[in-house]
């Protein structure tokens, strides 16, 4: 699999380590009401879809950036990649 790194171009997936569902970016607030249940969901439960999946890959053997790769889990086709930082900042309301 080749991952289209937004800064470095096509890179072999072997240079990356895999973390999992990109939903892991949305860490719950540990001080909020019902935090224990929210963290159980966050840590242990997964959508695990057959089809398009947004997931976190770490460019460990490269520039050590975190990417969100959009990939089809049925065909292994890679549909795109973005810097996880950009996605996280955009979710927080800009500041890019």
């Amino acid at each position: 699999m080749l991952i289209p790194h937004p800064l470095l171009g096509l890179r072999d997936a072997q240079e990356f380590t895999y973390l999992g569902d990109a939903a892991l970016l949305n860490r719950p607030d540990g001080m909020a009401e019902g935090a224990a249940e929210a963290f159980n969901d966050y840590v242990y439960l997964r959508d695990n879809p057959a089809g398009v999946h947004r997931e976190l890959w770490f460019h460990e053997q490269g520039d050590r950036s975190w990417l969100i790769v959009t990939r089809n889990t049925v065909t292994h086709e890679i549909l795109g990649a973005e810097l996880a930082r950009d996605v996280a900042l955009a979710a927080k309301g800009g500041a890019q």
Partner: peptide, 18 residues
């Protein structure tokens, strides 16, 4: 292998990745 897909039909998320 397909537990996630099947149990999704019952509205459940599982502590499983395929």
């Amino acid at each position: 292998g397909s537990s996630g897909r099947v149990m999704q039909m019952a509205g459940m998320r599982l502590p499983i990745e395929s």
